[in-house]
Design a protein around this nucleic acid. Structure first.
Lengths: 205, 205
DNA sequence: GTCTATACGTTGATAGAC
DNA sequence: GTCTATCAACGTATAGAC
């Protein structure tokens, strides 16, 4: 049973982390000020430092949350045996993530572009392991004649870059789309196109 | 005829801009300090401010140089009538840009992710115009039965995101590649794969 | 737990001698 | 044009009253 203080604590931490993710996404680590984050979370700056001693710690916690969600989306790939279905569901999950968690994607992109200092451990261990195993799956598909012979790494980078582009470069995309962000219908159509192009590139559909 | 001072001026400006591009790429606009840039350019901070009054002005000039180069690479698309050749050469040019101008690509990515405040004019005018005209070309190819019916915007975003990924996410790619950056041969192979996958996705090759 | 006031380090920018 | 010394502004973090 949680007491009142504990609930307050969790609520405030969550508010701060959400605000932080948005500010980090739009200003980068250095450009994000604890003042901006606190204001957006609706509390004084000193309060933020009460919950998260340093800005760096807060940043790390934001990143950790994103990693967890990333791995959840990644599990979609393993839920189906048929290449066409597995790829389709995975791409859809990634596109959905770009749609509803654009800030998370941007924080991640900023971090990796600037050298991945805070997430290199994750990349070296969890992500590398995940990728190596899925590369084997792709190679099995190829050996079984189920998809065309392609470089599995290039295939995954294709999926990641194409889907994440709709989050990270959403501002550019909006400008090129009469200045308006895609609505749900438009985004659905783009998702179908992305799925179609990738499937086709490996000889499916 | 240029005198000595004028030459010194140009040389120093170029040194500063090159250093600035590298520092902006790796630290973002806010994270980049004029001190770091000056040190990397091999001169005192005060000197940097003599050539570029403010950090913002320096940043703008770095961006402008990148835009110009971006447009040069874009011209490759127009040099060939045959879809297969035009797309191949354009993708190769973009991959080459990612290879030799990774910092430029990263500065651009950082800028767009964080709202494209300093390049919105370029996106709204030059880039939008360029894209609209090439979309027409793609639609002509489709109408002429030369390539599969695809959403031209999704096709261009595919080309941009896939190729730029090899610059912007090079750190992640290196980690996933035994911790080593691609050498020239490897990069060449990846380029061929990227070309192949994109061509195949529109029914070519 | 909350919040105001403040200390302290960092950084963009300039003054002024050479 | 170059460079050392310096300053003002800003931003992280904390002290200490409530």
């Amino acid at each position: 049973m949680k007491d009142k203080k504990e609930i307050t604590r969790e609520v405030n931490r969550k508010k701060i982390i959400q605000a932080a993710e948005n500010v980090f996404a739009n200003y980068g680590f250095k450009g994000a000020t604890t003042e901006k984050i606190a204001k957006q979370a609706g509390l004084p700056k000193a309060n933020l430092h009460y919950y998260f001693n340093t800005k760096t710690i807060l940043y790390r916690e934001v990143l950790e949350g994103i990693l967890e969600e990333w791995m959840v989306a990644a599990q979609t790939f393993d839920k189906y045996d048929e290449p066409k279905i597995a790829l389709t569901r995975y791409i859809e999950a990634k596109m959905n993530f770009s749609r509803i968690r654009a800030d998370a994607s941007k924080v991640w992109a900023n971090e990796v572009i600037q050298g991945a200092v805070s997430v290199s451990k994750f990349l070296e261990t969890t992500l590398k392991e995940w990728l190596e195993n899925r590369v084997k799956v792709i190679n099995d598909w190829i050996a079984g004649g189920k998809i065309e012979a392609v470089d599995p790494y290039v295939l995954f980078y294709m999926i990641w870059s194409m889907t994440q582009h709709y989050a990270d470069f959403e501002r550019q995309i909006a400008i090129l789309n009469h200045g308006k962000h895609y609505n749900d219908d438009e985004f659905q159509q783009k998702t179908e196109q992305v799925v179609h192009l990738i499937l086709k590139s490996v000889g499916l559909s």
